[in-house]
Structures are given as C-alpha cells and as structure tokens.
Amino acid sequence: MQAAWQAGVIVQLDHRYRLSPKVKLRRERFGALLYEWERGHLYFLSPPLVAALSELIQGKTPGEVLETSSGESALNGSSKVVKALEKLERIGVIDEL
C-alpha cells in the first residue's frame, strides 16, 4: 500500500481491473498505442507500462504487479507504474471489475 499512498493515487492495489471496452491496445516498437474510440484519443505507452498493463489485463491486481518489481530502483519504478495506472483509470482506459 505504501507505494500507492506515496503516489497519492486512487487505484486500489488489491482490486482487479480490465481494459475498458472503449479502448484498443496495439503493441508498437516504442511500447504500445492505446486508442480510445469514443473520443478518438490516442495514448502512447512506454514498455514498463505496457508490461504492467498486460499483467493487469491478465488478472493480476496492481499490488501483485508491483510485487514483481525488485532491486534498488523498485520503489521509484513502482511509484511510476502506480501513477501511470492511476492515470489510465482516470482517463477511462481501465475499469475496476
């Protein structure tokens, strides 16, 4: 929970999420493109975020996704991932199940 608290986020670390049906995700050389078709918005995702999002879509909770982070830079990396997931929820890319 600490990482989420530090990032000041809404995303619930023990909840499960899915990709919104309004969104399409496509892998690209630089990570992935997300297209939200209702408003026609396009988002660019970096590889770490794509990895986190993929795990989330496969059924892991954000907490479980963060547990896979390890090593010296884990906290910073985790914080970034949580912030990014929080943004994805805010803009409607992921929905809580």
Partner: peptide, 11 residues
C-alpha cells in the same frame, strides 16, 4: 519522432 518512422499498422 515515434510516429514519423511509421507504425506497425495504420491508426
């Protein structure tokens, strides 16, 4: 720079 070099598929 990301887009100029082309994507895997058209948007």
């Amino acid at each position: 720079e990301l887009l100029r070099q082309g994507l895997e598929a058209p948007i």
